[in-house]
């Protein structure tokens, strides 16, 4: 598609211009589910970035070997293999994080960000550009999750990365770490991002 644009563009677009969460509206389920705390946001974001980069690069290398009819199946198996890797790694080294993310680590398999980037980008571009695209989108996703996690943790618990930062007279709003808070935060942030885009 935009092969004439400089390589750095493919890296940067994931942060704001084509942010996977606010603009492409992909990967909504993990965005809502794991952002009750900032730590969970980082863990989920990095796990997704890891799977995204490896799957995109592998697909872009073997794209000419995959018959068009069975490509979805092949992509799925590649993604599932890397997700298993990430899951076993988290279980072994970060058991607490793995427990609090629950079934959402294996659910990276059906995260639409990965499918979307593979279909829209890696299947048509070389390995280097796919790597940049995956890295940009993955980090854009991670940063968004950290922002959402920080907002919800601050308002809902009065802490940030587990450290109490708000003064003791602040009464935490429990609703922010419940499902309702997730929907509200996501909706409000999306509206803010829309408003900023409409202005420029």
């Amino acid at each position: 598609m935009s092969s004439k644009k400089p390589a750095i563009y493919h890296f940067l677009k994931g942060f704001w211009e084509e942010n996977p969460v606010f603009v492409q509206i992909l990967g909504t389920c993990p965005t809502l589910a794991v952002t009750a705390t900032a730590v969970n946001g980082i863990g989920m974001g990095l796990a997704t970035t890891f799977v995204l980069i490896l799957s995109c690069v592998v697909v872009s290398i073997i794209k000419n070997l995959i018959p068009n009819e069975v490509r979805i199946g092949v992509y799925t198996v590649i993604i599932a293999a890397f997700v298993t890797l990430a899951d076993l790694f988290l279980k072994a080294y970060f058991p607490d994080l793995s427990k609090s993310l629950g079934p959402f680590v294996p659910l990276i398999v059906v995260n639409c960000i990965i499918f979307g980037r593979i279909e829209a980008f890696s299947a048509k571009n070389n390995a280097w550009l796919s790597f940049l695209d995956a890295l940009g989108n993955g980090l854009g996703f991670t940063i968004t999750l950290i922002i959402m996690g920080s907002i919800r943790e601050l308002l809902g618990k009065g802490t940030w990365f587990g450290i109490p930062v708000l003064l003791s007279f602040y009464k935490p709003m429990l609703v922010m770490i419940l499902p309702t808070g997730a929907f509200f935060t996501y909706g409000t942030l999306m509206a803010i991002s829309n408003a900023l885009k409409q202005k420029s």
Partner: peptide, 22 residues
């Protein structure tokens, strides 16, 4: 309001629904 049109207002509505289901 314009910035809320589309998915944003849907998410807010879902939040209120989640509140009811709570």
């Amino acid at each position: 309001p314009k910035p809320f049109q589309g998915p944003a207002i849907t998410l807010i509505t879902a939040g209120i629904l989640a509140l009811a289901f709570m």
